[in-house]
């Protein structure tokens, strides 16, 4: 007869999720690739200390060399250094817009799911936002608020806030719907009724009992939200309605390089490849997390 093994106090449910995730090769590869990209943009500029804004008219449009491993652009700026700095901005926009969008989605979803009185209004609002043509609205928002915000907060900070805010404002709806459905199901469970019956205020029921139980879908939609936000920011930059020319995001670099595509295809393919790899890795990670967080799967 075997002794019942004592449960390792450290082995909570997250270890089980990690075990399932670890066995998913695609998700693991996606996670590692994303970590590699993060290291590339975070530590890259510390190791490759070339000024990405340094204009060098004598070395314009250079091919790969030791001094410039990926060559230089039409102003003689080093492409590798620009990719690193551009990646920081692109990833920062992606993460910030996701955080804001998912936060908004969770807030609206929880309120709509928990307080029946507000449900109708909030879901009509969600439906209305889902019917908005996102890309045209984003373009209009950037067009209208770019100069006012740039004048108030400075060129780079203003457009950063604008792009992040605009993407968040147009991407919270799916999170809100998923969270609302989950909250409505959890709200009927006995432990919530028990908490209500001993007089726990709604605020504490939500933070102590409901939020931890809707964490799984939120994590998944947060991961996929990063990919979506990066795609949207790149698309805006590609259409010339994103960051100004001196702020090198990956999408902006593609936009700037398209005119030189015939002569120097590398310059447009590198940032394009970085965008694609980032989105691809995040999507694989998100898919893997979705499977790992669902214990039935």
């Amino acid at each position: 007869m075997t002794e019942p093994t004592a449960l390792d106090p450290l082995r909570n449910q997250w270890w089980a999720v990690w075990d399932r995730l670890r066995r998913n090769r695609a998700a693991l590869a996606g996670g590692l690739l994303f970590a590699g990209l993060l290291i590339f943009v975070a530590l890259g500029p510390l190791l490759w200390m070339v000024d990405p804004w340094q204009i060098d008219p004598d070395n314009r449009n250079q091919g790969p060399s030791l001094g410039h491993p990926l060559g230089t652009d039409q102003l003689g700026r080093d492409l590798l250094a620009r990719l690193m700095v551009g990646g920081r901005i692109t990833l920062a926009v992606g993460v910030a817009a996701m955080a804001l969008g998912v936060g908004l989605g969770v807030l609206i979803g929880v309120v709509a799911g928990y307080f029946r009185r507000l449900d109708g209004v909030l879901m009509r609002l969600t439906d209305l936002f889902l019917a908005l043509p996102i890309l045209p609205i984003l373009l209009v928002l950037v067009l209208l608020f770019r100069e006012a915000l740039a004048a108030r907060l400075g060129e780079a900070a203003g457009i950063f806030l604008l792009v992040v805010g605009a993407i968040a404002l147009t991407s919270w709806m799916h999170t809100a719907r998923i969270v609302r459905a989950d909250v409505m199901a959890i709200k009927e469970r006995d432990f919530i009724v028990a908490a209500q019956s001993i007089g726990t205020p709604p605020r504490r029921i939500i933070t102590r009992h409901i939020l931890p139980n809707v964490l799984s879908p939120v994590i998944v939609s947060a991961t996929l939200g990063v990919a979506g936000a990066i795609m949207t920011e790149s698309a805006l930059s590609f259409l010339g309605m994103g960051f100004p020319p001196d702020v090198p995001t990956w999408g902006r670099m593609v936009f700037d390089a398209v005119d030189y595509m015939q002569q120097f295809p590398g310059r447009v393919l590198w940032p394009g490849a970085f965008i694609s790899l980032t989105v691809l890795s995040v999507n694989y990670l998100g898919d893997g997390l979705r499977a790992a967080l669902d214990p039935r799967g």
């Binding site: 795609m231 593609v254 595509m261 394009g272 490849a273 694609s276 691809l280 694989y284």
Partner: peptide, 15 residues
């Protein structure tokens, strides 16, 4: 499907 989801149309187009 994953490539179609993840590679933006402006990258496939340029490629």
């Amino acid at each position: 499907a994953m490539l179609g989801f993840s590679v933006p149309t402006f990258v496939t187009g340029v490629l």
